[in-house]
Write a protein that binds this DNA or RNA. Structure first.
Lengths: 255, 255
DNA sequence: CCTATATTGTATCACTTTGATACAATAATA
DNA sequence: TATTATTGTATCAAAGTGATACAATATAGG
């Protein structure tokens, strides 16, 4: 699932140095975008995180906003660069701007270890305000791309997160909370599923998002009453029980 | 309700020039805060807007973020400067960052008319990303303060807005939409009312926010069932009918 | 091949919530 | 003192929800 970046130290060093040199001319100062990428597998809700250099710390995939780029386009571009996906369900949910979040020093120290203090340019010394988006993706289609700074891409259970830099743990909490209300209102869940699915799989998704159990028969009645599911022919699961129907979300009624 | 600013042209000109000179040293570049201030009177939901210079255009009260200031604190400070209120219910709901919003030229042209092109500094030529908050206030307590640039402070019915600069009309729409979902979930409505109120007044508020009528008896049953209202003694309205009870929101159960 | 097992699809019952209507109570007015 | 406008409460039917029962059926194991 993770994906080791295998540039040599020379290339990494040069890459970081070049980024810090060129960034001020390309990107808006003091502004960043962070994305909480949700996926769903093994009946668990997962978040895609990046390991920061060779530390035990992880961060949200993020990036900066080009000077002539729309905010939403920046978020989309950052996601495409990281996941390789084209059509991504994306929702802005929060902008984080406490000054304390810039006090984090682990990232700076690690970067300085790699490139040497003399090469330090002040791009990362800025105080950043970060606009946060969450994305829902069918993770069977993702090919995460690591990048300079980040040595590993990894899915984490939303309940078993690693150590995170900055206020990224808070941001993930807010993203989940927002996903919960959106799932009710806008039926965005299908973005996390493959094209077709059984009622059981859908229920597992809802249980993972809301972190609670639902009574099977009532859940089924409820979702069918929404008239957003199209029932297909039966599934041949190979499991030792009655084969469940397959469903597909009907687009058009929502979004 | 409005409040004419009566500085002479000389002072206005000097004020604007000075602001543009000093702003880059004080505030984060490319970032602003806009606030949608909701009030409730005459059974109507109102928004507080500022007339831009002597144009027919209005804008949302806004401002900039000091370099070492938390984002939420900036929003609070801007509101306090404008309304004179200390404890304000404030909710961040959206960050607006399309490049097209900076294409607005009315504001720039008007400012240049006042101070002369020679005096122009490039603070307002920047592309701004704006973090938007909405505020709920008991407007009987407000004393709006005008400021350089802005000649008049005025309440507008949320359904009868004047011409607005930038994308401020879109921002107000989003604010209302967010207020509607928050009112359901978090019972924030009391921030728009005076300390005590009748069930009829409360219903009018809900009707103004949701822009639809409710059946009186069912509305009453519903709100009483939430256990957030404390019933006081009767009200002596002087109206020619049975005197309604007065209620107060009980704090603690919400927020 | 036949039966056991696990899980699915549907029905049903009791209970709660919601929409709509009826009606008695009452403060000011004429 | 009766009238008027509005309020507080009750009630009935319809819709929605939680809990349970049960028949259907694809595979596994003998």
């Amino acid at each position: 699932m993770g994906n080791q970046h295998e540039g040599d130290v020379r290339g990494l060093k040069e890459g970081i140095r070049e980024f810090m040199e060129t960034a001020p001319a390309i990107y808006m100062p003091g502004l960043s975008v962070d994305t909480v990428i949700f996926g769903f597998h093994n009946d668990k809700l997962k978040v895609l995180l990046l390991r920061f250099a060779n530390t035990p710390y992880f961060v949200l995939p993020g990036g900066f906003i080009k000077k002539e780029e729309n905010l939403d386009d920046a978020a989309l571009r950052i996601l495409q660069e990281r996941t390789g996906l084209q059509d991504i369900y994306l929702e802005q949910f929060y902008t984080s701007g406490n000054t304390s979040r810039s006090k984090e020093t682990v990232a700076k120290e690690e970067l300085q270890k790699i490139i040497g203090k003399a090469q330090w340019s002040n791009w990362f010394d800025q105080r950043f305000v970060s606009v946060c988006y969450y994305a829902l993706i069918d993770d069977t289609k993702v090919k995460p791309e690591t990048e300079i700074f980040f040595t590993e891409f990894k899915w984490f259970d939303v309940n078993k997160l690693p150590k995170l830099l900055y206020d990224h743990d808070l941001i993930i909490k807010k993203a989940l909370s927002r996903l919960q209300s959106d799932l009710d209102k806008k039926l965005v869940g299908f973005n996390l599923m493959s094209e077709t699915f059984t009622m059981g799989q859908l229920q597992k998704l809802y249980e993972a998002v809301y972190q609670k159990k639902f009574v099977r028969t009532n859940f089924q009645r409820k979702l069918l009453s929404l008239n957003v599911l199209e029932r297909l022919e039966k599934q041949y699961t190979g499991k030792a029980h009655k084969a469940p129907f397959l469903y597909r979300f009907v687009t058009g009624s929502n979004e």
